[in-house]
Design a protein around this nucleic acid. Sequence first.
DNA 1: CGCTTAAAGCAAAGATCGTTGCGTTAGGAG
DNA 2: CTCCTAACGCAACGATCTTTGCTTTAAGCG
Lengths: 193, 193
Amino acid sequence: MSTGKRTGGRSAVVLAQVRHAVEDLVKERGAERVTIPLIAERAGVNPTSIYRRWGDLPTMLNDIATYRLDPDRPLPDTGEPRADLVAWAGEIVEHYAKPVNAALLRGGAAAAGETESDCLRNRRAEAVVLASRSGAPFAADDLIDLVISPIIYRVIFLPWTLTPDLAARCVDRLLTQRTSGGQAAGGEVASEA
Amino acid sequence: MSTGKRTGGRSAVVLAQVRHAVEDLVKERGAERVTIPLIAERAGVNPTSIYRRWGDLPTMLNDIATYRLDPDRPLPDTGEPRADLVAWAGEIVEHYAKPVNAALLRGGAAAAGETESDCLRNRRAEAVVLASRSGAPFAADDLIDLVISPIIYRVIFLPWTLTPDLAARCVDRLLTQRTSGGQAAGGEVASEA
DNA sequence: CGCTTAAAGCAAAGATCGTTGCGTTAGGAG
DNA sequence: CTCCTAACGCAACGATCTTTGCTTTAAGCG
């Protein structure tokens, strides 16, 4: 009885149905107008199952928003830094350009705050990895301020301004900045990775 | 009967009490765990009044988050661009460094999306003004990407990394960036101002 | 100082949500 | 194949939340 948890079969099906329903409803009504009974009905699942698995709505939204883009997808690593960064940032833009994922992110934002376990923590962990590659002329904090932040801000508040070139624009700003003083300030933020 | 609306006296008092209650409760329970009856009780006001005035919770949260920092506060204008920008950005950082306002912002984020009437629209309008001052070597979009975004991102997801020098760091990045190609790309975003 | 009516209070009915106890289904190990 | 039990379904209850019709208060105007 190694784990005791059940991962396959019915559980997995229910989970998939619930995720699907959440995405649908969040897309068409906004994260704030979604309720658990609503999701359960759409998913063809009993509300009790949802309550037992997640406890409450913010938790569920944050959870689903977190594991949507990646379990352990590999970071681009062609040896060409700029290309890798653009590819990475582009993935994020592309992902959140879909209204479903944007709405989920907004829901996750509402649940963020005190704790570090918000739905973007994986992204920050990736930033730390990218910034620590040998020769990277920027710190993880720069990646957060210059690449992640603009993308996420636009996703949440100005989704209609998301363009395919946003990733490249941000990366270029990052790489052409004078590494003034800084670079020693990195890693203080996402130290959990 | 010029307007028909009532702005003074009791209405104003109720409004103030409600705002106060919302801020209290959002601070101590998080925007996601606040309900209208709860607010009404804390404010010493009848729930019906709130339902009638705002309709529902997301609307109210967004509304209160919007008009908290400024009706028509004047933008810094000393003639010294860098100082003005740092003062402006500093106001924003200082404002959202208070947990109350950060929590409200998260609630507003959840309600944002399709429409432009989110709780940061006034900030973007200010960015347009600042970018259009004669001689400003940046566009409104740069101000959004390099100053507003990093601040807001940290407020929502990494509030404990908000430091007093953040404003200056962002402004310096803005002013030392090579105005590469760009500067013609401004104003497409917050044209409502 | 009265009139008009926007906005708040009150109370009760209706809808929705979240919890809990118990029976049923089916994953996983032996 | 069989047993054990994690996870789901069902049903009923209690606790909120939301709406609605009516009454009361007081802002703004003549």
